[in-house]
Amino acid sequence: MATKVCVTGGSGYIGSWLVRKLLVKGYTVHATLRNLAEDRSKVDLLNSLPNADTNLVLFQADIYNAHEFDDAIQGCEFYKDRVEATVAGVRIIADCCIKSQTVKRLIYTATVLASSPLNEDGSGYKSCMDESCWTPSDHLPLTYANDYVLEYTKAKTLAEKELLIYNEMEDAKLEVVTLLSGLVAGETIQSHLPLSVQVILSPFTGNMFGYYQGLKFMEEVLGSVPLVDIDDVCEAHIFCMENPSMKGRYLCAAADPTVREIKAYLEENHPEFKIDEKEEAEIRGIKCDSSKLKEMGFEYKYDIRKIIDESLECGKRLGAL
């Protein structure tokens, strides 16, 4: 019998790519959406994936109706969560996993924004970013911040900390892995350009909807812009799932350029596009040490060139460039 995996947010950027990879690998996938009746285009996308007719089961589940997750999780060995950015939300999910008595590992798609190497007083950066770094809880004076990104960063940081507590509970019988994913870019199977890809393309497209400001905010908080390709981040989720035993924090980023280095690459290799030039303070560039995941045996297939070039092709294909 095929191993069952539950994926929340199954129609999202990471979720849909991961569901496809799992189906191709022969897993049975339980994917959740907030509203099956209203999300017909999302349902149709997932049902069109390889082996979906035999190995995919869709469930309606909303965190405000926690019991809806019980059926989706029941019988699954692994649970992949990316939707929750609240302490209460991740508690509900973790408790559902424990109650199922079948889920042995919860893999949470965390964000590198929760692992800032900034000093607590905001006076500068540590020498590098690794899994020991936690973003300061106080709202530091950041040039590119706004209330939304500050609250999101704080919420994701607190939610990740809450989940990791379950690794210390002897009676929980649940392993929790948090994958601190860099800015995810590359291709998509969605019909629109994902927000994170729009952020990486913002040196071309400008600050429409605040995307370029988001790129600079990430650099300001982290000292660089950690990047990871959509295919690599999904492979990392599967790697964490297939390991015999695994728990704790893992940074997931293949490259760590500054915004200036991203612009330099674009200008040199894609002169057909005009860079939106701005006078900005230079960031020194803090390295993102993702060696912990690599030491476990994981290998990245996409470097900065492939990530950016694939994102550009995706943007052109979907009419964003």
Rank of each mutant, 00 (worst) to 15 (best):
M1D: 02
V7R: 05
V7G: 02
T8V: 12
G10Y: 03
S11N: 11
G15L: 01
W17C: 09
V19R: 03
G26C: 09
Y27D: 04
Y27P: 00
H30S: 05
T32L: 12
L36W: 08
A37N: 15
L46H: 04
S48I: 04
S48L: 10
S48R: 08
P50D: 13
D53I: 08
F59M: 04
Q60H: 00
N65H: 13
D70T: 09
D70L: 06
Q74C: 13
C76R: 13
F78V: 12
K80Y: 14
D81G: 08
V83Q: 14
E84C: 15
I92A: 11
C96V: 12
C97R: 11
K104P: 03
I107F: 06
T111H: 13
V112H: 11
L118I: 05
G122R: 05
Y125V: 09
E131Q: 14
P136H: 13
D138A: 13
H139L: 15
L140C: 13
P141F: 14
Y144S: 08
A145F: 08
N146Q: 01
D147W: 04
D147I: 03
D147V: 00
V149S: 05
V149Q: 07
V149A: 05
V149E: 02
T153M: 12
T153A: 12
K154I: 03
L158P: 02
L158M: 11
K161R: 12
L163N: 11
L164S: 11
L164D: 05
A172K: 02
V176F: 12
S181N: 09
A185W: 09
A185Q: 06
G186Q: 03
G186I: 04
T188P: 01
I189C: 01
H192R: 09
V199N: 00
I200Q: 03
F204G: 05
T205D: 04
G206K: 04
G206F: 08
M208R: 01
F209V: 06
Y211W: 10
F217Q: 05
E219I: 09
E219P: 08
V221S: 03
V221R: 03
D231Q: 12
D231H: 15
F239C: 06
P244R: 15
C252H: 03
A253F: 07
A254Q: 00
P257T: 14
E261I: 11
E261C: 10
I262M: 04
Y265L: 15
L266A: 10
E268P: 02
N269Q: 13
H270M: 12
E272N: 11
F273A: 02
F273P: 07
I275R: 08
E280Q: 12
A281C: 11
A281L: 10
K294W: 04
M296S: 13
F298S: 07
F298G: 11
Y300F: 10
K301I: 06
Y302L: 00
D309W: 04
E313C: 00
G315H: 14
K316S: 11
K316R: 10
